[in-house]
Design a protein around this nucleic acid. Structure first.
Lengths: 371, 371
DNA sequence: TTTCGAATTCGAAACGATTCGACTAAGCTA
DNA sequence: TAGCTTAGTCGAATCGTTTCGAATTCGAAA
């Protein structure tokens, strides 16, 4: 019902800045300036130009042409290595992204979602982006780094490998994890198990012997595991296939339900002497699943078993418990990454940033139960 | 530790296709073709060109220049009107986006996250995108539509207003909602309440009298509410402020806890005669919150109260119940929107698509309890 | 009236690729 | 061997802006 221009047949060449200039009787440079922010133009001229533009239905410079000329597209690429539906299931990822978007948006740029290098034809190699932010916590980041390097794209790595020479924003994952473990140690716990984020591709749920060297490209998960082992070298480890409540729940049944627990959900914890008295989960979602499992097995948290998570993300639907966890400033980290990307585009050289997580002792951890 | 070109001081003009052509001793057109997919070039030539490119460190055509010349950027804009952190908290949104990304990615294009028109400087008005997909289920879509129109950008509306003349992919929300209501009616329920998604900005949690006209720009929420009223004109309505478990839980306490329930979480449902025997929630998250609330109040689902949701999204952490709900093909809808956007870019004129949701009768709805 | 600046406006050269018709050289047929 | 087809390759013309130094205008100071 609203106006609809160019309805009928003509191929209708797009209106360009030059057309506007012609109609207004000025040069293209003037029109260009008139459409910019703070160029040297008289108000009268600006008005005239905009009038002409309105008459022709010109809505402003073509972003494609502008980005060629400027050498910038105003887009920051964000590399997701999983499919969207998976990547966005992780609340930490969302917070990071939210922080990035906030900072990048405020600067007048936008976000482009990029796939794995191998994935779609639109990847780091071919996307019109000015810089790239990638999540080092995912496996197989190295190709992406290499690609960005080749193209000369500024690169920011979120949660990257410590030894990386790429500009990075990360956390002291090992230290934070150690702190979580220490918290439990101080409460008297000695028999502790830990749940990790996926360590490697393919992502499978499996146990890891305490003696096993830590495998995996997921640097975050590896560091956190190492942190735990610094306090509890013998900690029994279950590698989860994803950061999901359900994964934590399954692991919970494995750890708390006893070796012979035939099927989950039928209650009946294993003997107290064989059971860990505390669990360190590498994410709040995993911790939540663990708490659910404990409940299903008739165990009280923290009376029978303590559970501590990691992230400190406010989880919708977890209103009843105050989860003990390591709170990390995810959104702030995202913002920092965004700022860094913009700075790199502007030619500055920001310095590597490292954030720290703080222990939040909630009501899901408590003293070790009497034997 | 890896190779690092152009380390030292020179401004180092970027290598262009022309440089490669010069070194290889061929024309730029040939180089361009050699870097394309299936152009007419001999294998020998392609090899020669790529060798020259490698020697110069040329990694392929500059996307910015290519998109100017081609008139396409290979990016599809997705308009999010909330901040990312909020938008991505909704699993349906994520599924839709996932579907879009799948289809768009497969075609070699990418996704650009765009803000509200008013929001950042990078909006529909200035982003280098070939088409725009917007979520009509959010309020204030009209500006975005107008902007896209002005720029002549192809536009796809997901869950748009039915009377819209924009190409749209949507659901029969009213019909599906009616079906959910009918399901409860058939089970004998007559005293029914309903929880809606946010109807309008600002988003506030509030009750809505049955007689009230339905306000709001959120077309999806409005339609679903109208569907319920077709079966239960008297249904008590609570407008939720977001699609969150917590919102559903609060509403649950309001509806089931009795008017005088002083504080939530202290148990004690109101008299059975005053309480609705069934609740229709406009999302699974809300339904889940409602079930939690019922549990906290000592009510059994569905023995004391039936709950049906909407969406049919697999929710992590809801392993114990089989939620009754209207399953909508969210991801498929996303894919359809993606395909439509691509088709529009290609100059085709796809036809409006409407999907249907199917009732899943799980174990959270049952016959009305004896009075 | 002439001169000097400040304030604008103009011209023209990039930016880096794609594309299309024209042109060249083989490969075949008669 | 002349004529015709086909596969490759080349030139040149855009694509629509931005930008930068040069040119112009206008008012005020001398």
């Amino acid at each position: 019902m609203t106006s609809s221009r160019q309805a009928a047949g003509s191929p209708a060449r797009r209106v360009t800045l030059a057309d506007v200039a012609r109609l207004a009787g000025v040069s293209t440079s003037t029109v260009s300036i008139a459409f910019g922010e703070g160029g040297p133009v008289s108000d009268a001229m600006r008005l005239r130009v905009h009038a002409a533009a309105a008459e022709l239905g010109y809505t402003g410079p073509d972003p494609r042409a502008a980005s060629l000329r400027r050498g910038r597209s105003g887009l920051i690429g964000v590399v997701l290595e999983e499919r969207l539906g998976e990547a966005f299931r992780d609340p930490v990822r969302i917070s990071l992204l939210d922080g990035i978007a906030e900072e990048v948006g405020a600067a007048g740029s936008g976000l482009a979602l990029l796939g794995d290098v191998a994935a779609g034809p639109l990847s780091i190699a071919t996307a019109p982006v000015d810089a790239v932010i990638l999540f080092g916590c995912s496996t197989g980041t190295l190709d992406s780094i290499e690609q960005a390097r080749r193209r000369g794209l500024p690169l920011v790595e979120l949660e990257g490998r410590v030894e990386s020479d790429v500009f990075a924003v990360d956390s002291d994952n090992r230290g934070a994890s150690r702190a979580a473990a220490q918290h439990l140690y101080d409460l008297g716990h000695r028999r502790v198990a830990t749940l990790t984020l996926p360590l490697d591709r393919p992502r499978v749920h499996r146990a890891l012997a305490a003696a096993d060297p830590v495998p995996g490209h997921n640097f975050v998960a590896v560091e956190r595991l190492l942190g735990v082992r610094e306090v509890f070298p013998e900690a029994h480890t279950i590698v989860c296939a994803a950061s999901l409540v359900e994964e934590g729940r399954v692991a919970g049944h494995e750890l708390l339900g006893g070796a012979d627990a035939p099927r989950y959900g039928e209650g009946g914890a294993c003997a107290a002497s064989a059971r860990p008295t505390a669990i360190i989960a590498q994410s709040d979602l995993l911790a939540l699943g663990m708490i659910r499992a404990a409940g299903e097995l008739g165990l009280r948290v923290p009376a029978d078993v303590s559970v501590i998570g990691f992230d400190g993300i406010r989880l919708d639907g977890l209103s009843d418990r105050d989860l003990s966890t390591m709170i990390q400033p995810a959104q702030e980290k995202g913002r920092a990454a965004g700022r860094a990307a913009l700075a790199l585009v502007a030619g500055e050289q920001p310095e590597r940033l490292r954030y720290h997580s703080v222990l939040h002792a909630g009501d899901t951890t408590g003293p070790v139960p009497d034997p």
